[in-house]
Design a protein around this nucleic acid. Sequence first.
DNA 1: TCCTTGACTCAGA
DNA 2: CTCTGAGCCAAGG
Length: 125
Amino acid sequence: MPGYSSPPDPVAYKNKVWEIVRLIPAGQVATYGQIAALVPAPPGMPARDYQAFGARWVGGAMAACPPGVPWQRVINSQGKISLPEGKGYEEQRRLLEEEGIIFDDRGRIDLTRYRWSGPGNPPEA
DNA sequence: TCCTTGACTCAGA
DNA sequence: CTCTGAGCCAAGG
């Protein structure tokens, strides 16, 4: 799949993304934008644009998500699963529900309640 | 060669 | 909260 304006180093970028995704604790979720915000932006790119496009890069990275990465905990900023039905949606939703995440009537997740605080502000510590 | 299609987000109404 | 439009790049038909 195309990597919408691939980052300077696609491979390194993906690894960085997966590294962060792996930090997401079970029962919590993070948005593409949130992940992108945790990955260093390439030089010369406005922070705002990076947040918008970085999210797509994250999506591209997730498309090639290797085993061991909780890809199901990554959703869009709307608190919804980005995958269309029949292409992983059901699987992702099932995995999240098994972690205790509750879905809205419209299949939405309450981000104010399940959103990951980030690697620098773990719920435990 | 042109046109469509992507695991997206933000701002405005 | 929901809906619309714009932003950028590469591969496939």
